[in-house]
C-alpha cells in the first residue's frame, strides 16, 4: 500500500464517509499513519458530502487535503469542485453513470466506471461506493483486494455480516470493471 492523499466526494447517502473509513481502517491495520476527516454540516441524503483520507509513512500533519493524489468522484458537483485541485499525475475515478461530462484535465489519469449502473445490476444503487472503491484499487494499486475485504468485514456490525458479502461482491465487480 502506498502513501496517498485521497478525497472521496459525492452526494450524502452514497456512502462516501463509509468508503473513506474502509480505506483509513485498512491503512491503519497495515501500520500506516492515517487521518479521516469528514465534511460535516446540515447534510442529508441528496446533499453533498466528502471526506479526506491521508495515508502516510510519517505522522500526519494537516488532516485537511488541499491537493489530493486521488479524487474519487461520485457526482457532477464534486467533480466540478475538486477536479482542478488534483495534483499533476494524480488519479481521478469517475462514476460514469451519474456524471455527464468527461474530465477536462489531460495531466491526470482518469478511470471511468459505471458504478451506479453496476450497483443497480447487483440489486442496490447504494453499493456504488463499493464499486468505486474496487475501481480505485485496480487503478492505483493503493491496497491489495484482501486488505479492503478485511476492512469491510471488520467495519460492519456482526449482526449485519450478510451485508459484508454483498459489499465485497460489489467491490470486486468494480475492480474487474
Amino acid at each position: 500500500m502506498k502513501s496517498e492523499n485521497i478525497i472521496i466526494a459525492g452526494f450524502g447517502g452514497q456512502g462516501i464517509l463509509f468508503a473513506g473509513k474502509l480505506l483509513a481502517y485498512a491503512a491503519m491495520v497495515a501500520g500506516k499513519e492515517i487521518s479521516w476527516l469528514p465534511s460535516y454540516g446540515p447534510e442529508m441524503r441528496g446533499g453533498t458530502a466528502n471526506c479526506h483520507v491521508v495515508i502516510s509513512e510519517e505522522p500526519v500533519g494537516s488532516p485537511i487535503i488541499v491537493n489530493p493524489d486521488v479524487l474519487i468522484s461520485m457526482n457532477r458537483p464534486s467533480l466540478d469542485k475538486f477536479e482542478n485541485s488534483v495534483i499533476e499525475g494524480g488519479t481521478i475515478v469517475v462514476d460514469k453513470s451519474l456524471i455527464d461530462r468527461k474530465v477536462t484535465r489531460t495531466d491526470v489519469r482518469v478511470k471511468y466506471v459505471e458504478a451506479t449502473k453496476i450497483a443497480m445490476e447487483l440489486g442496490n444503487a447504494a453499493l456504488a461506493n463499493m464499486v468505486m472503491v474496487g475501481a480505485f484499487l485496480k487503478e492505483t494499486g493503493a491496497f491489495i483486494l484482501d486488505e479492503i475485504k478485511d476492512a469491510i468485514v471488520k467495519n460492519i456490525p456482526k449482526t449485519k455480516q450478510a451485508l459484508a458479502e454483498i459489499d465485497i461482491k460489489a467491490m470486486v465487480a468494480g475492480y474487474n470493471a
Binding site: I34, W36, P63
Partner: peptide, 10 residues
C-alpha cells in the same frame, strides 16, 4: 475544534 471533534485517527 470541529476538525478535531469530527476527524478519525487511530
Amino acid at each position: 475544534d470541529g476538525t478535531l471533534g469530527q476527524m478519525m485517527e487511530p
